[in-house]
Design a protein around this nucleic acid. Structure first.
Lengths: 201, 201
DNA sequence: CGGTCGCTTGACGGGCTTCAAATAGCGTGG
DNA sequence: CCACGCTATTTGAAGCCCGTCAAGCGACCG
């Protein structure tokens, strides 16, 4: 078990990929850096999420805690032998990878073809959906454990543009900020329309 | 076995996901449409590529032939029972999914943080690498079975921008067009630099 | 209450898109 | 085999969305 404080890295881009882990508490960000410092956040992790080893060799990304977090490590060998004795796990791994792939495809659509407002609306709906699977479908608000810059780097924008789109969604009455890091969704259907690009109103 | 001519769909976004297939000849494009017609190509398929069922329910994308192609279908049931009798396949499936995930992450970096020239250079290097694994590492050119519009929709650009960046890479002597749909790489290292964003020359 | 850091807001500029037109490529039929 | 016509690609000009730079504001913490 490993405890992490906000900002602490789990591992770095370029480290040899030897272990796998499951997040049990808190939240993490996954990001890749380009040579000149540009950054793309390719995903966030929440409790229950598992990180296997995608490819032999080195990690292609860095993972960092967004807040106080806890995770459980397994050595690659221990994990492999666990799989040997529980072959049904393999199917479960495949299923998880398939879901991640589907999410990655949605993110490619977002990054390739959606405008700034659509990106932020899509992101909020993703977080709302997650909140509802955990807290029940009546939940209408959720936390933002990540900074505006993290959101920007996830959505392929700048922090300024994230701020402006936030202000726009707020101004149109679709969301409300309970605190700086907590969003309440006031008009889910209209938010869905913005996210989908059907937003000529 | 199914033969396809250029432009023919394999299946459409929204079709129930019941079967899996392997491409044996030709090439395919995978794309998602937004409500207003915007399109994101999330990948291309080449001989040997396999498409499993990522998520229960409906396909989230359309697949279409780029040229005359051939593929082999398996019903989901046949495929599942094949897996039952060959459990080692499961690990192979997982490995494939993991590679696709790694590719998806690279594409997210491209779409989120690279400029137009970097995107096109990255794409060409991806195709060159593929060509070299097939034809040998001395290969310096490759075909573009897809249109400029397909490339644009893969890279999150417009076809005009793709044309302009093509002209720029050509003008700088990094590539040459043998024909409209065949690219020769003249300066691989410089192309790598452009792709990585280390290009202040 | 002061200081710091993150967030918001404003003004301006640039890279890519949009709209438009010219050119090239390619299959078809004479 | 060549001319024709259609479509894809290239090139040009103008505009816009978002990025960049800068300043002001607010939240959190000691």
């Amino acid at each position: 078990m490993q405890r992490l404080r906000a900002g602490q890295p789990v591992f770095h881009q370029g480290d040899p990929a030897r272990r796998v882990f499951m997040l049990t508490l808190g939240s993490l960000k996954i990001y890749t850096l380009l040579g000149d410092g540009r950054r793309q956040v390719t995903g966030f992790m929440f409790p229950g999420d598992f990180l296997g080893i995608s490819v032999e060799g080195e990690y292609a990304f860095t993972i960092e805690a967004l807040q106080q977090s806890e995770l459980w490590w397994f050595s690659r060998e221990a994990f492999d032998s666990f799989i040997e004795t529980h072959p049904s796990i393999e199917r479960e791994l495949y299923r998880m990878a398939a879901h991640e792939l589907a999410a990655a495809q949605r993110q490619m659509v977002l990054l390739g073809r959606k405008n700034a407002a659509e990106r932020l609306a899509s992101f909020f709906l993703e977080l709302l959906k997650r909140e509802q699977t955990i807290a029940g479908s009546m939940a209408q608000s959720f936390d933002l454990p990540m900074s505006r810059l993290d959101i920007a780097d996830y959505l392929g924008l700048t922090k300024e543009t994230v701020s402006r789109m936030l202000a726009e969604l707020r101004g149109r009455g679709l969301i409300r900020l309970e605190r700086q890091n907590r969003v309440e969704v006031l008009e889910r259907e209209r938010l869905e329309e913005v996210a989908a690009g059907n937003d000529e109103g």
